[in-house]
């Protein structure tokens, strides 16, 4: 079983700060991590490899710094890694990103499964997984929260949908996008870290992928960001401090009155 896991390096969202005057995100000094949902994808891939044998290849597109994310994946147990990095890929939207990644996957070749995190915490679109499947013309099972069965011919997965779970089977090649219930990501090992340090990770640019230049980066992206602004979030909050019996009682009575006034009880 040969499994490719496309991952993304993202800023640690919890520590994202905003420049209040310009309304832009301050990227400096923000720690970069592997997109948290991608860790579940890596873990699932490693578990499948442990069961059926084979190889797991991690892939990312990003600046040279994104090598760190690939090294971390290798430290977790991934066998090989590829970085797609070139200035011309800058400004890619999900269409152009899916295009470049699917081309890299073709170049890696000979795969059975592609496993993606359902979405990345920065862009939050969840569009690249299904997008890659469409470029490769293979089926996609999204929102996978459980791998029920797997063998060399097919797998059976549960998909988390609005009203419950769908259980579906499919042969290969196939792309899965996974949500966090699917696995429990392992930590990098010392041996893995050593391997990551010494592993030569190929970096592929525009020429290596042989893509049509008009379809790359911002030029190849159908969408444009027209405007960015900060959401307004405030409303008048009636605050009470409840730290002893009397004040707790008063606060709760106030809630009861509010709920009555708004016809909620």
């Amino acid at each position: 079983m040969r499994i490719i896991v496309p991952i993304k390096q993202v800023p640690e969202t919890k520590s994202v700060r905003m420049d209040e005057s310009t309304g832009t995100v301050i990227r400096e000094g923000v720690e970069s991590i592997i997109n948290p949902l991608d860790l579940y994808a890596i873990e699932l891939a490693l578990q499948i490899k442990e069961k059926l044998g084979g190889e797991v290849v991690a892939l990312t597109m990003g600046p040279p710094k994104a090598l760190e994310a690939l090294k971390e994946a290798v430290a977790m147990g991934v066998d090989e890694a590829r970085l797609v990095s070139d200035r011309v890929f800058g400004g890619s939207d999900t269409w152009a990103t899916s295009d470049a990644l699917s081309e890299a996957i073709r170049k890696i070749g000979n795969f059975d499964l592609i496993i993606c995190g359902e979405r990345a915490t920065d862009g939050d679109t969840g569009q690249v997984g299904p997008g890659i499947a469409a470029f490769l013309d293979i089926p996609v099972l999204s929102y996978v929260n459980k791998l029920a069965e797997i063998n060399d011919d097919e797998c059976v997965v549960h998909r988390l949908i609005e009203r419950g779970e769908d259980v579906s089977s499919c042969g290969y090649p196939l792309l899965l996008t996974v949500v966090k219930e699917v696995s429990d990501p392992r930590l990098p090992t010392l041996r893995g870290k050593k391997k990551a340090k010494n592993l030569d990770i190929p970096v592929w640019g525009e020429k290596d992928l042989g893509l049509d230049a008009s379809l790359l980066g911002l030029k190849g992206s159908p969408t444009r960001v027209a405007k960015i602004f900060r959401p307004k979030v405030t409303r008048e909050c009636e605050m009470t401090v409840a730290n002893d019996h009397t004040s707790i009682e008063a606060a709760c009575a106030n809630v009861a009155e509010f709920l009555t006034r708004r016809n909620l009880i």
Binding site: V233, E236, E238, E249, C252, V255, L259
Partner: peptide, 26 residues
């Protein structure tokens, strides 16, 4: 609290039983 209509600054485990009781009485 920035998006709330009513904010109670307190320990949820102290407030919760009292709130349940108040609503029950109500």
């Amino acid at each position: 609290f920035k998006v709330a209509d009513i904010g109670i600054v307190g320990d949820m485990f102290e407030v919760l039983p009292e709130l349940a009781e108040t609503l029950r009485k109500h």
